[in-house]
Amino acid sequence: GEYTVTENAESAKVEGYTLAVTGSGEKKTVVKDGTTEFRITNSYSEVQKPKGSLKIVKTTNGGTTPKGTEFVITGPNNYSKTVKYSEFAGGPYELSNLPVGEYTVTENADSAKVEGYTLAVSGSGETKTVVKDGTTEFRITNSYSEVQKPKGSLKIVKTTTGGTTPGDTVFQITGPNNYSETVKYSKFAGGSYELSNLTVGEYTVTENAESAKVEGYTLSVSGDNGAAKYIENGGTAIFQIVNTYSPTPVIPDKPITPDKPTIPDNPTNPDKPTMPDKPTMPDKPTNPDKPTNPDKPTTPDKPTNPDKPTTPDKPTIPDKPTTPDKPNRNGSFPQTGDNSNLPLYAAAFAVSAVGLGVLLIARRKKNHKVK
């Protein structure tokens, strides 16, 4: 007989897809001892829904958001995605090609916590609609505030006896939360060193004895070296450390045993002295030559009398000088002709010559008397 097989298309629909059914509703005959085959094909095509984008903009105040902070994104059709802050790459995080609809972005506050800070998150958990060909922005801000913990101070007081603590002596300071600091004695002022604004808790100060050694001295470190003390809120823990230096005694070298003295050789007999040569008689001295008489001195020549001086000529009386011409009253210059008296000059010269001759004669007489 004839049979018909029909597929209920409504029951075969899938959301987001279109359905095309072939072979449904066909009528075929079933024959004796035969098998009649009905072929029905369902063809699904995804419905191209409108798409949009989503952007998360992260802002941090007062601290640093950890890279492991998680953000959970949920949307239509059970959409869910979790991203970490390390994926933001220093800027916003964006998701594209999302079906339009409502989306929610929630920051996991526990993953964003920072030790020693309180956290306030704004913008987390908001729901917004992603529209076709648009970008919906979610702004989430983390505000960190440092927790003001109780604080105190630590003071190291250094005393040295018997020597001088080297400036390179090292002091190791340890405390809570893995606190560690190293300071040298050269940084001490007046024999003390102070650290402030320290978290309350138990602290230890240890001097490195090797760095405090001084050549020629033994060192003993006492006081609070290596001891633990508790710093209270607003208080100061004082560590008293004493270095005592003592001169190292010098042990003398062990004396050495001297060598055994040797026996000297037996002395030998001296050589027999020889007889000196017989002395010789010196030559007889000779008489010196007889001195000769000196020559008899000669008598000097008798001096001669000087010539008798001659009487000089009697000087002549010079001419009477003439009266000069009366000066010209007409303003003309006087005549410059030579009007002097030559005989007067000659007489003066003659008198001078006579005086000079008398002087020469007197000198010659004096010289003869001396001889």
Rank of each mutant, 00 (worst) to 15 (best):
L19I: 03
L19V: 01
A20R: 05
A20D: 15
V21N: 03
V21T: 09
T22I: 01
G23L: 03
G23S: 03
S24A: 09
S24T: 14
S24M: 08
G25P: 03
E26I: 02
K27A: 15
K28G: 07
K28I: 00
V30N: 12
V30G: 13
V31K: 15
V31D: 13
K32A: 15
D33G: 10
D33E: 11
G34C: 04
G34H: 09
T35P: 14
T35Y: 02
T35F: 00
F38A: 01
R39Y: 02
I40L: 09
I40N: 07
N42K: 10
N42Q: 12
S43K: 14
S43D: 05
S43H: 04
S43M: 01
Y44S: 05
S45M: 06
E46M: 07
V47E: 13
K49C: 09
P50L: 00
K51E: 12
G52M: 05
S53A: 14
L54R: 05
L54S: 08
K55L: 06
K55C: 01
K55V: 12
V57Y: 02
V57M: 08
T59I: 10
T59K: 13
T59Y: 03
T60D: 14
N61K: 15
N61H: 11
G62K: 08
G63P: 02
T64E: 13
P66Q: 04
G68L: 08
T69L: 09
F71G: 05
V72A: 09
V72G: 00
I73T: 10
I73W: 03
I73Y: 12
T74M: 10
G75D: 05
P76E: 07
N77V: 09
N77T: 11
N78Q: 14
Y79I: 03
Y79L: 04
Y79C: 10
K81Q: 14
K81L: 11
K81Y: 10
K81H: 09
K81P: 01
V83D: 05
V83T: 14
V83Q: 08
K84T: 15
Y85M: 06
S86T: 07
S86M: 08
S86E: 15
F88S: 02
A89M: 13
A89F: 06
G90T: 12
G90H: 11
G90K: 04
G91E: 08
